[in-house]
């Protein structure tokens, strides 16, 4: 059906608009650059304090620590992204603007994904520098980062809207989000471990799990965002 295909095109055009808007707001306020990136580096330093500057322990724990830092930063990034929205009633404005709900979801997720990817680049440099972990298997690592980021951003966008506008949002969001993201932490950590230990074959299985997770939550977001925007 021609209408169907144009609908998908509209959704992607709307997604681009929303993502561009979010990233423009982000670029002008520079909260990610001035707060989130330093926070992530701080977490890496604190892990160092907690585990003693023993290079062997830190190097062995690098994949897990890297993804934990990403997870904590994701919570902060989401709180930031959705508090900007609810403070100015942007959610209502988006609803009134007649944009496609699926497009709004994809746009929000894309905006968050770009920020998370930037963060991961900095963190990867950080673990190489502080923990002395030399990255291997670039294809597996980049694929893992991409798949995990899509999963994080789509679950994050769903839960960000869910908890938007609540007084207890700041404490509720991590409680709702982190158990759902547990499989991402496990899979991404294992894939990175495989990459660092040069056993990439093992890692692709975990990448597949990340891919399934990302697709599933992208689908849930695309279908459920309509409902979520309606009443928030």
């Amino acid at each position: 059906m021609p209408e169907q295909s144009s609908g998908v095109a509209v959704a992607f055009a709307d997604a681009r608009l929303v993502a561009a808007k979010d990233l423009r707001v982000e670029w002008r306020s520079r909260v990610v650059l001035s707060q989130l990136v330093p926070f992530a580096i701080l977490v890496l330093v604190l892990f160092g304090f907690a585990l003693d500057p023993d290079r062997t322990v830190l190097e062995r724990a690098t994949p897990g620590l890297f993804w934990l830092a990403v997870l904590f930063s994701t919570v902060l990034a989401l709180q930031r992204a959705f508090s900007v929205e609810s403070a100015d009633g942007v959610t209502d404005a988006l609803r009134l603007s007649g944009l496609d709900p699926a497009g709004i979801f994809l746009g929000k997720a894309a905006g968050i994904a770009v920020q998370l990817l930037l963060l991961q680049v900095v963190l990867l440099a950080g673990v190489s520098l502080f923990y002395g972990a030399t990255p291997h298997g670039p294809v597996l690592m980049v694929s893992t980062c991409l798949a995990a980021t899509v999963g994080l951003a789509s679950v994050g966008s769903i839960y960000g809207v869910l908890s938007a506008g609540l007084r207890v949002r700041d404490s509720l969001l991590p409680l709702l989000l982190l158990p759902i993201l547990a499989p991402v932490l496990i899979a991404a950590t294992q894939a990175f471990t495989a990459a660092y230990e040069r056993t990439s074959g093992e890692g692709w299985r975990w990448f597949a799990l990340l891919g399934v997770f990302a697709c599933l939550y992208l689908a849930i977001g695309i279908f459920a965002f309509d409902q979520l925007l309606e009443e928030s």
Partner: peptide, 28 residues
Amino acid sequence: VVRAKRSAIVGVVAFVNVPIVHYSVEWW
């Protein structure tokens, strides 16, 4: 109404998540 709608979505997502967590932990 808001509570019903939002928690309905969480109720579905939480249940979908059960097998994913189970298999990832098992593999792990």
